[in-house]
Simulated assay, not measured.
Amino acid sequence: MASVTAPTTTTAADGDEVVHEFGPILRVYKSGRLERPLVAPPVGPGHDDATGVDSKDVHLGDYSARLYLPPAAAADGNRLPVVVYVHGGGFVAESAASPSYHRFLNRLAAACPAVCVSVDYRLAPEHLLPAGYEDCIAALRWVLSGADPWVAAHGDLGRVFLAGDSAGGNICHHLAMHHHAHHPDATPPSRLRGAVLIHPWFWGSEAVGEETRDAEGRARGAGLWMYACPGTSGMDDPRMNPMAPGAPGLERLACDRVMVCAAEGDFLRWRAHAYANAVAAVKGEAAVEMLETAGEGHVFYLFDPDGDKAKEMLDRMVAFVNADAA
């Protein structure tokens, strides 16, 4: 997710008035036309020659999922961890078919190795929040049901992890907090083994660390959230500020361990540290791993996937997933 700005009103060259503009991530015209300037054309699933990973799309009604099966799954009886990944994009952009996410999931699946499930949830403003949260909760339930043949044959449902970046990191927190919410006739779900929140998009009315204290700056930090979730109570909505007064206690996180990634040049850096500290306060320091990448910005690993720091972050994620392998 790129840095977001408050809504502006300008006039486009073709005479169609721009009524909302959020940095380079979303432009909304008076006519209803939408532009997502950063989003590259989607890529299809299939066999990835570089990693040997196979992928497929599964359509599940309002949402879909792209599944990744690494070569290691071919070993007889080899049960692999399952990683449910939630892409970023400010709740308004990107998809599981975005080239940068498809490349990253191929690499993550091969490196762990793991069965990976990348959730393609509905985006705002066509589908305002909480639609995206609801799709991801449904997708997690679907994965845990073992309904898909790849998951059933090769996944270890006792080793399920969440992972996501930016808005996807925000959604991962929501999933871990509401993991136990299930239908009355459903079997209560098992605990998740862990969650990896990469540069998670959290915010709040009160600054933490070295965040801006300027009221206008704080409003800009939440402008896109307010647009994507018009029913929100504001910056301290527990979905945007898990540490807000009155927010559900973090002891409810339905995972044994949490890894939080931050980037030195990201304006969300201090919020990531505050979240990691808050989780450690209730779950114990041993349950939380913090990684800050020096000299890099928000979701840098998607833009420079072959860089040393992107490789380091991937290695740390792999180690986190495999830390307590059976």
Rank of each mutant, 00 (worst) to 15 (best):
S233C: 11
S233N: 04
G234V: 14
G234H: 11
G234F: 04
M235A: 14
M235G: 10
D236G: 10
D236E: 11
D236S: 08
P238I: 12
R239M: 08
R239A: 08
R239V: 06
M240L: 15
M240S: 13
N241T: 14
N241F: 12
P242R: 12
P242G: 13
P242N: 09
M243G: 07
M243V: 13
M243T: 14
A244I: 10
P245H: 12
P245V: 12
G246W: 05
G246A: 06
A247V: 06
A247C: 11
P248T: 15
P248S: 15
P248A: 15
P248K: 12
G249R: 12
G249V: 13
G249E: 10
L250P: 01
L250Y: 06
E251Y: 08
E251R: 09
L253I: 10
L253G: 07
A254L: 02
A254D: 14
A254E: 09
A254Y: 02
A254F: 00
A254G: 12
C255I: 07
C255P: 00
D256W: 11
D256F: 11
R257F: 10
V258Y: 07
V258E: 04
V260W: 03
V260L: 13
C261I: 13
C261R: 07
C261A: 12
A262Q: 01
A263K: 01
E264K: 05
G265A: 03
G265R: 06
G265F: 01
G265Q: 05
G265S: 03
D266T: 05
L268D: 00
L268V: 04
R269P: 02
R269K: 13
R269V: 03
W270C: 09
W270D: 15
W270K: 03
W270F: 13
W270I: 02
R271F: 02
R271E: 04
R271M: 01
A272K: 00
H273E: 06
H273Y: 07
H273T: 01
H273K: 10
A274M: 03
A274H: 06
A274L: 04
A274E: 02
Y275E: 10
Y275K: 07
Y275I: 10
A276F: 06
A276D: 05
N277Y: 03
N277K: 13
N277E: 10
A278F: 08
A278Q: 04
A278N: 02
V279G: 02
V279P: 00
